[in-house]
C-alpha cells in the first residue's frame, strides 16, 4: 500500500510517501514561499526519486486545517483532485494532530500543538497517546492563548507545546503554567508529513466531492451577515 501525504496548511510545506509501514520519502521546507508554485513540483520530484508513479498510489492523505485559508485550500484541492482522478481513497487529518503524533509519542502528559491566529489567539487542540493510540482530548479550536493557559492550568498533567509560532505565546504559558509546561525542540516544530501519512493510512476514506478544509472560522463576510440577520429577526 502506497500513501502520498500533503501538508500546506502553514508555512511548512510537507510531502511524504509511505509504503506499508515504511517511510520511503519525505520532503519538508519551512520558508515563506508560494505553496501553489512549489507543491506539485515537490510531489513530482519526491515520487520520481522514490520510483513511484501516480497510478501506483493507493491513498492520498491531506492536512485539512486549521491553518492559513489559502494554504489549506491548495493542499486540499490537489489532494481531492488527485484522489478523484486516480479513483483512490482520500483521508483528511487535522493539521494540529500531525504535531502531536510525532512529539507526543514519547511524552508523559498531554500535547497542545498550536498555530498563531493573530490578536493573541491561537488554533490549538489537546491530544495524548493512550496505549499506543493518539486520542483527541479537546477538538481543534480558536481561542486566546491566555484563556487556553488558564484552562490547562486547571488540570494536573504536564503539557507539551509544539509549533513554529510558539515563541509568540510562550511567555503566557510560562507565566500561567510554570513547570507544568514543556516546550518541544526546534526539530519538532515542523509537522512531519510522514506522520500525516501514517495517521491517515488506516482511516476510512472520505467522500471526495464534499471534502472541504476545516477552517474553524466562518468567512468574515459570512459571520457578519449572520450577525446582521440575527438582529433583524429580533
Amino acid at each position: 500500500m502506497k500513501v502520498l501525504s500533503i501538508d500546506t496548511s502553514n508555512y511548512p510545506l510537507g510531502v511524504a510517501l509511505l509504503e506499508g509501514d515504511k517511510v520511503i520519502g519525505e520532503y519538508i521546507t519551512n520558508v515563506k514561499k508560494n505553496h501553489s508554485v512549489r507543491v506539485m513540483p515537490a510531489i513530482e520530484m519526491l515520487m520520481k526519486d522514490c520510483d513511484v508513479k501516480p497510478a501506483d498510489l493507493d491513498k492520498i492523505v491531506v492536512a485539512k486545517g486549521p491553518g492559513s485559508y489559502t494554504g489549506v485550500r491548495i493542499g486540499v484541492t490537489i489532494a481531492k483532485t488527485l484522489a478523484w482522478t486516480l479513483n483512490i481513497p482520500l483521508a483528511g487529518v487535522s493539521s494540529l494532530e500531525i504535531f502531536a503524533a510525532s512529539a507526543g509519542r514519547y511524552f508523559d502528559g498531554v500535547v497542545s500543538p498550536l498555530f498563531d491566529a493573530r490578536r493573541g489567539q491561537i488554533y490549538t487542540g489537546l491530544y495524548r497517546y493512550k496505549e499506543g493510540q493518539l486520542v483527541t482530548l479537546v477538538k481543534d479550536q480558536l481561542l486566546l492563548s491566555k484563556d487556553w493557559a488558564d484552562q490547562l492550568s486547571e488540570q494536573n498533567e504536564n503539557v507539551l507545546f509544539i509549533g513554529n509560532d510558539l515563541p509568540l505565546h510562550q511567555d503566557i504559558f510560562e507565566e500561567t503554567l510554570k513547570d507544568q509546561a514543556v516546550y518541544a525542540a526546534p526539530t519538532e516544530h515542523n509537522p512531519r508529513p510522514a506522520e500525516l501519512a501514517l495517521l491517515g493510512r488506516d482511516r476510512e476514506g472520505e467522500e471526495v466531492h464534499s471534502f472541504v478544509p476545516n477552517y474553524i472560522r466562518l468567512a468574515e463576510a459570512e459571520a457578519n451577515w449572520i450577525e446582521a440577520n440575527k438582529e433583524k429577526k429580533l
Binding site: 485559508y69 484541492t77 482522478t85
Partner: peptide, 19 residues
C-alpha cells in the same frame, strides 16, 4: 487570486496524475 488557485491546482493535479 484565491479563486484562481483552485482551478490552477486542480488542473496541475490532473495533468500530473495522467501525464
Amino acid at each position: 487570486v484565491g479563486a484562481l488557485l483552485i482551478g490552477v491546482n486542480a488542473a496541475k493535479a490532473i495533468a500530473f496524475a495522467h501525464g
